[in-house]
Design a protein around this nucleic acid. Sequence first.
DNA 1: ACCCTCACCTGCACGC
DNA 2: TGCGTGCAGGTGAGGG
Length: 291
Amino acid sequence: MPELPEVEHVVRALRRVVVGRTIVASEIRLRKLIGEMSPTTFDRKIRNAAITGVSRRGKFILIECQKPDRQGGQRSRAKGRVETHLVLAVHLRMTGKFLYLAADDELPKHSHAVFYLDNDRRLVFRDQRQFGIMRLLPASKLHQTKGIVELAPEPFGDEFTIDYLRDVLKRSERTLKTLLLDQTKVLGLGNIYAAEALFRAGISPFTIAAKLSKPKTARLHGEIRDVLGFAVDHIRGSIKLEQGFSYGAAFESFWQVYDREGEPCVNCGTKIRRTTQGGRSTYWCPKCQRK
DNA sequence: ACCCTCACCTGCACGC
DNA sequence: TGCGTGCAGGTGAGGG
């Protein structure tokens, strides 16, 4: 159920333990996880690849791999260049998690992919609801890949400016809450941080995007960055290498509106309300977030 | 081009 | 104890 801060946290945790390791074998236990590719092809492609880096694009985790080039010679030249720089793009969706297990740790339920590493440990992808996806791509194709090309600019990058946000909002008649969840418009927020950003900005989730004033747009832009940054800084991992790692639930204590229906607003004491927008819960303070 | 609804899954908390 | 309902931090396909 991660949003951008949780994904960033997973990326950092992964980076610490898997960069420099080589994947000696893989095991795909849920075929649909990897899309059209067969588990056999997947394994042939990723086997003996060294993990050179872990990064992120939006909520996608990017595990960068380098295959050895020594068999490259005649055969691959005849068949055209075989790309040795690979990216394993992983989206956790609602319940995806990575575990870093010792050789004799039992595989937990819903373990859908296992990567055997050269240090006798296993990197395991586990996903109760099976919504998560994993795609093995040539690195050169990553930014042409459907689902990734369409993504909005990174919220902490230079392209995500007030003017960018203003432009996006101006062209939409949707409500702000719905628009903030659209990763092709604003990147990184999910249901929690969208609610939290709107609350911090004092803006109603029902405001029509195109009608948001210029000052409020600037305010919202700031709060989107702040709430995501605050979360990145405050999530402290429950990282236990022996048991695996995941993002922690400790962050709940910082929620000001999300999942607080009926509780008093931290600013004014008014009861926080909940309703459904686009099939998802929206929480807001009716007094602090009038328009 | 846009936007809405539904579908994809399992599990948990709740009321009867 | 069980069973039915609604809900869960995400997104994509398919339709209007």
